[in-house]
């Protein structure tokens, strides 16, 4: 464990806390894409299959449980909670995310570390996470004004993988046989997808203005 990875995990956790806070405090999920939340739940379920078979550390196990539980809780909340589900922007959240699932699964069948179920699902979760934010970014562009908590949620979600890239550079330099091409390339693509969001987020922060993504 290095400081970059810890910072990345904490930032990721923070993004989930901000999202839970937004939904709980405002009893509304307006501006949040249910499709992105479903993709994230799928990412965690596909990636943490080894939750019960491989014990890595208490920290690792606890974080996996927290990520799986929180992502499922958010999907449940947006689908079934009587008050919250009414504020879901169903007509704006129209990204065809099934193509993302199909495309990344096919890619995982072709590009993986080992042609075993666990490795294929692990690679699938890595590729899917890279594109999971797309429905959310499309929704933000369509919904025009972005409320602060939603903007912070997306910002922290993008920032966490940037910390992971520093972690991979650090591990590459300090560990002899460290190579994680799948995670690294996918992580760079993932962070790149946030680039324009980061740009507009920075502009809105600098001008102290409302965050607006161009349609």
């Amino acid at each position: 464990m290095n400081i970059f990875r810890l910072a990345g995990d904490m930032t990721h956790l923070l993004s989930i806390i901000v999202l839970l806070l937004k939904i709980y405090a405002t009893k509304s999920c307006s501006g949040i894409s249910l499709k992105t939340q479903e993709l994230y739940a799928l990412v965690f379920l596909a990636r943490y299959l080894d939750l019960f078979t491989d014990f890595i550390s208490v920290y690792n196990t606890i974080m996996k449980v927290v990520f799986i539980a929180s992502s499922l809780a958010i999907v449940w909340c947006m689908r079934l909670h009587p008050l919250v589900k009414r504020s879901y922007d169903k007509e704006l959240d129209t990204f065809r995310h099934y193509f993302l699932i199909g495309g990344t699964f096919v890619l995982a069948l072709v590009l993986n570390e080992k042609f075993t179920l666990q490795e294929i699902l692990w690679a699938f979760s890595i590729y899917l996470e890279a594109v999971a934010i797309l429905p959310q970014l499309v929704l933000l562009q369509r919904s025009g004004n972005v409320d602060n908590l939603t903007g912070q949620y997306v910002f922290f979600l993008g920032a966490y993988r940037a910390f992971y890239i520093l972690n991979w550079i650090y591990r590459y330099l300090t560990e002899p046989r460290f190579t994680r091409w799948i995670a690294c390339v996918s992580g760079i693509v993932q962070t790149g997808i946030y680039a324009d969001f980061f740009y507009y987020y920075f502009i809105s922060w600098k001008n102290n203005s409302k965050l607006k993504l161009p349609a």
């Binding site: 990875r5 491989d54 690792n60 974080m63 996996k64 990520f67 570390e113 692990w122």
Partner: peptide, 10 residues
């Protein structure tokens, strides 16, 4: 034997 801690990251 110690399984290769391959996916030791979240």
């Amino acid at each position: 034997f110690q399984k290769v801690l391959y996916h030791d990251e979240l």
